[in-house]
Nucleic acid binder design. Structure first.
Length: 557
RNA sequence: GCCCUCGUAGCCCAGCCAGGAUAAGGCACCGGCCUUCUAAGCCGGGGAUCUCGGGUUCAAAUCCCGACGGGGGCACCA
């Protein structure tokens, strides 16, 4: 619907330009302030070639355009050509479309399969808030891409062949496991202590290296030992993700690619290229591609490195469709090396979403040293905080209601606070900020949804809507935002920017809260039916947006 | 040292990729609004040399060069 307005405006302008023999594609923007709904500075560009003042050109262009469709008016203002949306004509068809499509409003028809890898933290301890950023970006993107119409398979790549898990196994043999703790936290305890011991006595290193060689060689006993250790830790990690509504479709163990000898085959293919160099170790020289750092493929003892196995994993993923990886900023170089290597091999090159680290005020986190804030801790505190808020606000409600709302508000706040900032910004984690349910946070959006639900619930039977005699600015804003939702979904999916959905939901909630304040619905007479439809449409759009963000829409709170 | 990235009010953050009209919000602060659909809400106010210096352009927060500051990388770790 809204798209039609944009296209009509575009066509109107292009027609006028074409009539004058001007071959130029205009740029458009959404003006801030009171300058209509769509604007183009085209007259500024034409000023020089036409040797006329922008103001004059804009006026000429505008006067030649006959408004049609959803374009109500074209106006020249301060050198700009501004298009005004015909809200009265736009409102009823839009509301009808939203109501008809319901949970599918905004769903696109993109198509194609995408393998999306995210989280993929080592099974050596609980997920900390840094991993949380990865998981939340990844899961939100998965939801957005699915809604845009892609077939998405979310994968968790389990690093079972790395040093980390070997240290856990080594530690388990010496130290045993505290069985009454949550699995991932118990594993971290062993991992941290094992690291301490290894640091104290460097000669123990060899024992870890031997474990790694043994696991790579693949004896039945050692396989079982490693797999059990990893699976045990993973159980706890999955529970954490589950609480936040984050699910993977598939866990892929890196050892798979060693066992089925695809790593070996990749190595053969790479050796055949002119970039392979073999000395004490096998490596790739990628200087021709502007990468100074050589990519080591095998250790002196012949065992594989993480990246070597990752190449095999990515080749396997390529065979299924587009490949998207959510990786931390510490992997930027590896990401470049991997892309280059796959390009050399003629395989699908993965797309990366690289996010910057979350650091603590006192410095960076480290599972190994036990310095981190776990996601469990953050979610726990957030839900706790939400509970005390619900109790304050809804003292009369029963315990089950209060707990349910607190759980969904608390987890939603965690997801929202992390997704709302663009991934390329570093974050410093502060408890005061993380637990501050500020206005632009998840509860604000959930509350708008609950308000919409309440109105509809009280309204009872539907009436057939007719356009009201006039629309307020608040209603217009709401209508425009509702119309934009499908465009936001497409952009968020295609630009791989899930936080755009967060910004959108915030804006829509804000518009609705204002509408709620100033435009009575149930008490309205002539406008009642129309406003009820508007509330219903808002409810639907908020609902769909919240689901994309992995935040529970609450009918009451 | 070299490479990547970020730098917007006291604090957080959008806008930057596809340059244009008074730089959008939030927190905190000050002042208002609950006989009206749940005040986790709404309205108003003050607060910005868009890190700094050059350049390109009719026009720069946005593009280019340089500096400074934060983060990351430069492992036979992952």
């Amino acid at each position: 619907m809204y798209r039609r307005f944009l296209e009509e405006a575009r066509n109107l302008l292009q027609e006028v330009l074409a009539r004058r023999g001007l071959e130029i594609t205009a740029t458009f923007e959404e003006p801030t302030g009171d300058f209509g709904d769509l604007s183009t500075p085209i007259a500024f560009e034409l000023a020089r070639p036409l040797k006329k003042a922008p103001k004059t050109i804009a006026e000429e262009l505008a006067s030649e355009m006959k408004p049609r469709g959803y374009v109500r008016e074209v106006r020249a203002e301060k050198g700009y050509v501004n298009f005004y949306l015909d809200y009265m004509a736009f409102a009823i068809p839009l509301l009808r479309e939203i109501k008809a499509r319901g949970g599918d409003y905004g769903r696109g028809g993109a198509g194609g399969t995408i393998v999306l890898e995210h989280t993929s933290a080592n099974p050596d301890g609980p997920l900390h808030i840094g991993h949380g950023r990865n998981a939340i970006i990844g899961d939100t993107l998965a939801r957005v891409m699915r809604f845009a119409g892609h077939e998405v398979e979310a994968q968790y790549y389990v690093n079972d062949m790395g040093r980390q898990l070997a240290i856990v196994v080594w530690g388990l043999r010496r130290l045993g496991l505290e069985r009454d703790k949550k699995e991932d936290h118990a594993t971290a305890q062993v991992y941290i202590e094992a690291n301490r011991l290894l640091e104290e006595d460097k000669s123990l290193e060899e024992e870890v290296a031997r474990l790694m060689r043994e696991y790579e060689a693949g004896g039945e006993g050692i396989k079982k030992e490693f797999e059990e250790a990893a699976r045990y830790c993973l159980q706890g990690m999955v529970a954490t993700l589950e609480r936040l509504g984050i699910r993977h479709d598939l866990q892929v163990w890196e050892s798979t690619f060693v066992r089925n000898s695809s790593v070996e085959k990749v190595l053969e293919r790479l050796k055949a290229t002119k970039y392979a160099k073999e000395g004490e170790v096998l490596y790739l020289d990628l200087k021709d591609f502007g990468i100074e750092k050589e990519l080591i493929l095998t250790r002196k003892d012949g065992t594989y490195l993480y990246t070597t196995r990752d190449i095999a994993y990515h080749i396997w993923k390529s065979s299924q469709g587009r490949v998207v990886d959510v990786w931390g900023a510490d992997h930027k170089l590896v990401a470049e090396q991997l892309r280059t290597t796959l390009r050399i091999l003629g395989e699908t090159v993965p797309e990366f979403i690289i996010y910057e680290f979350i650091t603590l005020p006192e410095g960076s986190m480290s599972t190994r040293r036990g310095i981190f804030v776990s996601l469990d801790e953050l979610v726990g505190e957030s839900v706790e905080r939400a509970l005390s808020e619900v109790r304050k606000r809804r003292p009369e409600a029963d315990e089950a209601f209060q707990r349910h709302v607190a759980e969904k508000v608390g987890t939603g706040a965690v997801r929202y606070n992390i997704i709302r900032v663009a991934p390329e910004k570093g974050l410093t984690f502060r408890w005061e900020e993380a637990l501050d349910f500020e206005r632009q946070g998840a509860p604000f959006i959930q509350y708008a949804y609950a308000r919409a639900c309440r109105i509809l619930e009280k309204a009872g039977k539907e009436e057939s809507p007719q356009a009201p005699p006039s629309l307020s600015k608040d209603e217009e804003r709401l209508l425009r935002l509702l119309g934009k939702f499908p465009l936001v979904v497409v952009e968020a999916a295609e630009a791989r920017k899930p936080y755009l959905v967060a910004a959108y939901a915030q804006e829509l909630a804000m518009a609705f809260h204002r509408f709620y304040m100033y435009e009575p619905v149930l008490k309205a007479t002539r406008e009642r039916a129309f406003r009820l439809e508007l509330v219903l449409a808002t409810k639907i759009a908020l609902h769909n947006a919240l689901l994309l963000l992995g935040i529970e829409p609450l009918e009451a709170m």
